[in-house]
Amino acid sequence: TEHYTFHTEEQAQRAAKKFKKQGLPVTIHEKNGKFTLQVN
């Protein structure tokens, strides 16, 4: 499991699309105004 932190939801969504294209499951969590992208 890898985690990436982004300052905006837009950045997180863009990164999520790249991972999803590779067939990886992705979840985004919002915490304290930051967005954490979790790749399993």
Rank of each mutant, 00 (worst) to 15 (best):
L24K: 06
H29M: 12
L37K: 00
H3C: 14
E10M: 08
K31V: 14
H3T: 14
R14V: 09
Y4N: 05
A16Y: 08
Q11A: 14
K34Q: 09
H7G: 09
F35R: 01
T27F: 09
H29G: 06
Y4H: 06
P25N: 15
T8W: 03
L37D: 01
T36V: 15
P25E: 15
E30A: 08
G23P: 01
V39A: 04
K20L: 14
N40A: 11
H7W: 09
Y4P: 04
R14C: 07
Q13H: 08
A15M: 08
V26Y: 08
K31Y: 12
N40S: 11
Q11H: 06
K31H: 14
Y4T: 05
H3N: 10
Y4R: 06
P25S: 15
E9M: 15
K21D: 15
N32E: 08
E9N: 07
T27D: 05
A16V: 05
Y4S: 04
K18G: 07
H3D: 08
E2K: 14
T36S: 06
K31F: 13
H3P: 07
Y4M: 08
E9P: 06
K21A: 14
Q13T: 06
E10V: 08
H29P: 00
Q13A: 07
G23W: 03
L24I: 14
Q22P: 02
N32A: 05
P25F: 15
T27P: 00
Q38K: 07
K20M: 13
I28P: 01
F6N: 00
V39M: 06
P25L: 15
K17R: 11
V39T: 04
Q22R: 09
T27I: 09
E30T: 06
G33D: 03
G33K: 02
T36A: 05
E10K: 11
F6P: 00
A16M: 07
G33Q: 03
E30W: 07
V26E: 00
G23A: 03
K34L: 13
T1S: 10
R14H: 09
Q13K: 13
H29T: 14
L24P: 01
N40H: 14
K34S: 08
A16P: 00
E10G: 06
K20F: 09
K34H: 09
A15L: 06
Q38F: 13
L24C: 05
E30L: 09
R14G: 06
H7F: 10
T27N: 05
V39L: 09
K31M: 11
F35E: 01
K20W: 12
G23F: 03
F35Y: 12
E10W: 11
E2G: 12
I28T: 02
K20R: 14
K21T: 09
Q11I: 04
Q22Y: 10
Q13V: 11
E10H: 07
K31L: 12
T8H: 04
K31T: 12
T5Q: 07
G23D: 04
A15N: 03
R14K: 11
R14W: 07
T36P: 02
T8G: 03
Q22H: 09
E2C: 12
L37W: 01
G33S: 02
T1F: 12
E2D: 10
F19R: 02
V26N: 02
Q13S: 06
K18W: 15
K18Y: 14
V26G: 02
F35Q: 01
T5G: 05
H3F: 14
A16I: 05
K21S: 12
G33W: 00
H3K: 11
F6I: 00
I28M: 05
Q22D: 07
Q22C: 06
K17P: 00
V39H: 03
A15Y: 08
G33L: 02
G23I: 01
L37M: 05
G33I: 00
Q13G: 03
K20V: 12
K34I: 14
K21R: 09
Q38P: 00
Q11F: 04
E2Y: 14
E2I: 14
T1M: 11
R14F: 07
T1Q: 10
Q13P: 00
F6V: 01
N40Y: 13
L24W: 10
F6L: 02
K21N: 11
E2R: 15
A16N: 01
K21F: 07
E2M: 14
N40Q: 11
T5H: 10
E2L: 15
V26S: 04
N32Q: 05
A12T: 02
Q22A: 11
Q13W: 08
A15D: 01
A12R: 00
V26P: 02
T8L: 04
H29D: 06
E10Q: 09
H7I: 09
V26L: 03
T5N: 05
G33P: 01
I28A: 01
T5E: 10
N32H: 06
N32R: 03
V39P: 03
Q38V: 15
A15I: 06
F6K: 00
E30P: 05
K21Q: 14
T8K: 04
K18I: 12
T1K: 10
Q13E: 10
I28Y: 03
T27S: 09
T5A: 06
P25H: 15
A16W: 05
L37N: 01
N40E: 11
L37V: 13
R14Y: 08
L37E: 01
E9K: 14
Q22I: 10
K18V: 10
T8P: 00
F19M: 06
Y4G: 06
K34P: 00
E9R: 15
F35M: 02
K20S: 08
T5I: 12
E30V: 10
E2A: 13
T5P: 04
G33V: 00
L24E: 02
A16G: 04
V39K: 01
T8M: 03
A12D: 00
G23R: 04
K34W: 09
A15T: 04
K18R: 10
A16Q: 04
E10P: 05
G33M: 02
L37R: 00
E10N: 06
T1H: 12
G33T: 01
A15P: 00
T36H: 14
A12P: 00
T1L: 12
T5R: 06
F35H: 03
Q11R: 05
V39Y: 05
Q11W: 04
H3S: 12
Q38A: 08
E30S: 07
E9W: 15
R14A: 13
H29E: 11
E30F: 13
N40I: 13
K17I: 13
Q11G: 07
L37S: 01
T8R: 03
H7R: 09
A12V: 05
A16H: 03
Q11T: 05
R14N: 11
T36R: 05
K20Y: 10
H7D: 15
N40R: 07
T27A: 07
A16E: 04
K34E: 09
Y4D: 04
H7P: 11
A16R: 03
T1G: 10
P25M: 15
F35D: 01
E30Y: 13
H3V: 13
V26R: 00
Y4L: 11
I28G: 00
R14D: 10
T36I: 15
Y4C: 08
K20I: 14
Q11C: 06
Q38N: 07
H3M: 13
I28H: 01
F6M: 02
E2F: 15
E9A: 12
G23K: 03
F35S: 01
K17D: 14
K20H: 10
N40P: 07
H3E: 13
H7E: 15
E10I: 08
E2Q: 14
T36K: 06
K18L: 11
T8Y: 04
A15F: 09
T27Q: 08
Y4Q: 05
R14T: 10
I28S: 01
T1P: 11
T36D: 06
F6H: 02
F19A: 04
N32F: 06
T8F: 04
T27G: 03
F19Q: 01
L37G: 01
G23V: 01
V26K: 00
I28Q: 02
Q38T: 15
K17V: 10
K18D: 07
G23T: 01
A12I: 02
G33E: 03
N40F: 13
Q38G: 04
N40D: 11
L37T: 02
R14S: 09
K18T: 07
T5Y: 11
G23Y: 03
F19H: 03
P25I: 15
T5F: 11
F19T: 00
Y4K: 04
T27L: 08
T36E: 13
K34V: 14
E10A: 12
V39E: 02
K18N: 08
H29A: 09
A16F: 06
